[in-house]
Each structure stands twice: as structure tokens, then as C-alpha cells.
């Protein structure tokens, strides 16, 4: 299985993602933002970080970089594209997934483990996953998911909500919402479910002794689903 991780100026989770993908069997290539063409890939990842220094709006500059046209074409032809953290911010700026990510409600940079609940397993990312609640790590300043009322209705009607912030038992409540996201939303699909954007970092949960194993569960399942 072939994957590509795009490196933008200011990306800083690209190598972690590379390590994670390789650990679970992907043949991963790093792709520079200024390249024109994606290598042949089964999965494209937009990693976390601070692309272009978060200037203007997080992800806005990266969404216009050269490689993104190729990523957008790949996504529109049904290819799997996963945006993590800053990658999620880039995805919303391209319009591949709906909504935007605003500054966290309490204006603080949040760096901690959170639990997220899967809402929809009818997709390549979560199909056959034997858990409904996963513990991932978040580290962001602009993760406050927002969309218009009409968009919210549409994403609900199309089952586009991928992840909700919750407690360890999967209870979704305001008190488990770290950043003020509308409806506790932590991750969103596009309509076709081949594109996913999420604030939590599964690649930071791939080693029991360092962090946790829920990222390992996610990546192992993902590669099996792609095979």
C-alpha cells in the first residue's frame, strides 16, 4: 500500500506520520508542497504543524500551494485523503470538507489526550474497527469547528460527522468539549467519505510505552481496509 505525506513549510508532524505509516506497512513517500504531481498513492496525508506560520488563517496559504491541485484532483476522483490538525485546517480551506476551524473558545493552546467517539463506520477509515471510543492526542490553538446551520443540517443528513469529543465511556457532553467545537465535532468527512479531516493526532498513539495504542489500532485497521 502506497501513501504520501505532504510537507509544507512549517509542517512539523510530517515525520511522525511517516514513522506511523511505515510501522503499519505503508510504503510512504514524503512529497514537497512545491511539487506538481503526487506519486501513485492509495492514501494522501496532510500532516499537522503550522504551515506558512499560520499566516492569514491557519491552512489558507497551504491550501493554495502547487501540490494541492493534484491532491484536490486525487480526492475528487475518489482517492483517500486524510488531514490531521493543520491538515484538517488545510482541507477546510480547500473546501474538500465543509466548515471552518476557529480559534479555541477559551483562547488557549490545548495540548492533552482526549477521547473521541466514532459516529460512522461505513467508510474506509473506520470500517471493522473493534472500538467505538479512541484515545488520541490534540495540540492546537484553532480547532474550534464551526459551520453554518444549513451546513450542519447537511453534514448530519449525510452522516459526515466522523468523530465527537467525549469521555472515556463515549458520552458526548459539553464538559468534554475542549475547544468549543459546534456539537463536540472533532472530525468531518466529505460527502463521499473518502476525505477525512480531524483535529486529533492518531500518529501520536502508536507506542504503548510512550503514549497509547489507539493510533496503532486505527492504522492497522486502515491498511487492512485499503488492501
Amino acid at each position: 500500500m502506497k501513501s504520501s505525506v505532504i510537507t509544507f513549510p512549517g509542517s512539523n508532524c510530517d515525520r511522525d506520520m511517516d514513522v506511523a505509516l511505515k510501522k503499519f506497512g505503508f510504503n510512504n513517500k514524503m512529497v514537497w508542497h512545491n511539487d506538481n504531481e503526487l506519486p501513485k498513492s492509495d492514501l494522501v496525508v496532510l500532516p499537522g504543524g503550522f504551515s506558512y506560520g499560520d499566516y492569514l488563517r491557519c491552512g489558507s496559504m497551504a491550501s493554495k500551494s502547487k501540490i494541492m491541485q493534484s491532491v484536490i484532483n486525487f480526492a475528487k476522483s475518489g482517492g483517500l485523503v486524510m488531514g490531521i490538525c493543520n491538515g484538517f485546517q488545510i482541507l477546510v480551506e480547500t473546501g474538500l470538507v465543509p466548515g471552518v476551524l476557529l480559534r479555541n473558545k477559551y483562547l488557549e493552546f490545548i495540548c492533552k489526550n482526549v477521547f473521541v467517539k466514532l459516529d460512522n463506520k461505513e467508510n474506509t477509515y473506520f470500517k471493522n474497527l473493534n472500538k467505538d471510543v479512541l484515545e488520541f492526542h490534540i495540540a492546537h490553538n484553532e480547532g474550534n469547528y464551526f459551520c453554518t446551520k444549513d451546513q450542519l443540517k447537511e453534514i448530519k443528513d449525510n452522516n459526515q460527522i466522523a468523530l465527537y469529543y467525549c469521555n472515556y465511556e463515549g458520552k458526548i457532553d459539553d464538559q468534554y468539549n475542549p475547544n468549543g467545537s459546534i456539537k463536540n465535532i472533532a472530525g468531518i468527512f466529505n460527502k463521499e467519505k473518502n476525505v477525512i479531516g480531524m483535529m486529533p493526532h492518531p500518529e501520536r498513539m502508536i507506542d504503548q510505552s510512550l503514549s497509547g495504542e489507539d493510533g496503532s489500532i486505527f492504522f492497522k485497521n486502515l491498511i487492512n481496509n485499503i488492501k
Partner: peptide, 8 residues
């Protein structure tokens, strides 16, 4: 196209 995000 760039300076504003018309969603917000």
C-alpha cells in the same frame, strides 16, 4: 479567493 473565508 484568499483573503477572506466566506463561510465565516
Amino acid at each position: 479567493k484568499l483573503l477572506a473565508n466566506l463561510v465565516i
